Simulated scan of single mutants.
Amino acid sequence: MTTDHAAPTALARRFADRLADLGLTEAQAAARAGMSTAYLHRVLELGPDFDPLALLRLAAVLGLEYEELVAGRPAERVSRPAGPVLVGPPVLGELDVAECWRRLGANGLGRIARTGPDGPVVRPVGYLVHGRTVLYRTAEHGPLAPGAGGDAAFEVDRADGDLREGWSVLMVGPLEYVTEPALLAELPRPAGHGRWVRLTPTTVTGRSIRTAAAPGS
Rank of each mutant, 00 (worst) to 15 (best):
L86V: 13
G63L: 01
R77Y: 08
V70D: 04
L53M: 06
E65A: 15
V85G: 10
L64M: 14
A75N: 06
L55V: 03
E67H: 12
V78K: 14
R73I: 00
A54L: 01
Y66K: 10
A60R: 12
L58C: 02
Y66F: 14
A75M: 01
L62T: 07
P84N: 09
P84Y: 06
A59W: 02
G72V: 03
R77K: 11
L86R: 15
V70K: 09
L55R: 10
R77H: 10
L53W: 00
V85M: 11
R57A: 11
P84R: 15
V78P: 01
V61K: 13
P74C: 06
L55D: 10
A60I: 03
E67F: 07
L53E: 05
S79Y: 05
Y66R: 13
L58W: 01
L64Y: 01
A54P: 02
P52V: 08
L62Y: 02
V85S: 13
L56A: 15
P84I: 11
G63Q: 09
V78M: 09
V61F: 01
E76C: 07
L58F: 00
L69A: 08
L86T: 11
E68Q: 14
Y66C: 06
P81Y: 06
E67W: 07
V70I: 05
F50K: 06
G72Y: 06
A71M: 07
P52F: 05
R73Y: 00
V70M: 04
P74Q: 11
A54S: 15
A60C: 04
A60H: 07
L69K: 07
